[in-house]
Computed example of a mutant assay.
Amino acid sequence: MIHLIELHPAALAILCYWLFSAIVGGMPDPDAKSGPGYRWVHNSLHILAGNLTTAVQAKYPEMAIPAGSSMEHRETTTVTTPLP
């Protein structure tokens, strides 16, 4: 097993990061009863885990997309013609 880790250290790093991210993703969201320490730890770990959306929504709840809503991308094309 040790020999396998020595041959593939990047795979071990990816596995450890994936586990860390999964554990952080399972943390309960802070609520009104949560202290400032838990909110700080929650937001900081989500940033480290790459969950920036979760961290920003916890800091700025008014920016959160409501559950059940969907977003739609609309593309428009503007055609201009030169004047004679």
Rank of each mutant, 00 (worst) to 15 (best):
P30H: 09
A13L: 15
L45V: 15
L4Y: 03
F20W: 13
P82F: 07
V79S: 11
P36R: 13
L15D: 10
D29C: 00
L4F: 10
C16Y: 04
R39P: 12
L19I: 10
P66E: 07
H8I: 07
T80E: 13
G50N: 02
E62T: 03
T53F: 02
L19V: 01
I2W: 07
T53H: 07
A22E: 06
A55F: 05
I23Q: 06
S44R: 09
L12E: 10
L7M: 14
V41M: 13
H8Q: 13
M71C: 01
H8W: 12
I23P: 13
P61L: 09
E62R: 04
A49C: 05
P9K: 13
E6L: 01
T78N: 01
G35H: 03
P82V: 06
H42E: 00
L52G: 00
N51L: 09
S21V: 06
V41C: 15
T76P: 00
P61I: 06
E6V: 00
Y38E: 08
T81A: 12
A11Q: 05
N51S: 04
I47A: 08
A10K: 11
I5E: 04
Q57H: 10
T76K: 05
L52K: 04
V41D: 06
M71A: 06
A49D: 14
L45F: 15
I14A: 02
M1R: 07
V24F: 07
L15N: 11
L19Q: 11
G26L: 03
K59C: 10
S44D: 10
L4T: 10
D29I: 04
P30R: 13
D29F: 07
E62W: 01
T78E: 14
A10T: 12
L48G: 06
I65G: 00
H42A: 06
H42G: 00
Y17Q: 11
L83W: 05
H3C: 12
P36Q: 08
I2E: 13
C16W: 07
L15E: 11
A10V: 11
E72D: 14
I65H: 02
G25H: 07
N51D: 09
I14W: 01
G68E: 03
A64Y: 02
M27Y: 07
P66I: 08
H42C: 01
A55K: 04
G25A: 09
M71N: 00
V56M: 12
I2H: 04
I14N: 03
A64H: 02
R39T: 15
E72N: 15
I14C: 00
P30F: 11
A32M: 08
A32L: 09
M27G: 04
G37Y: 09
H8D: 12
V56L: 15
M71L: 04
W18T: 14
H46Q: 06
S70L: 03
A64R: 13
S44Y: 09
T54R: 15
I23Y: 11
K33N: 10
P28V: 05
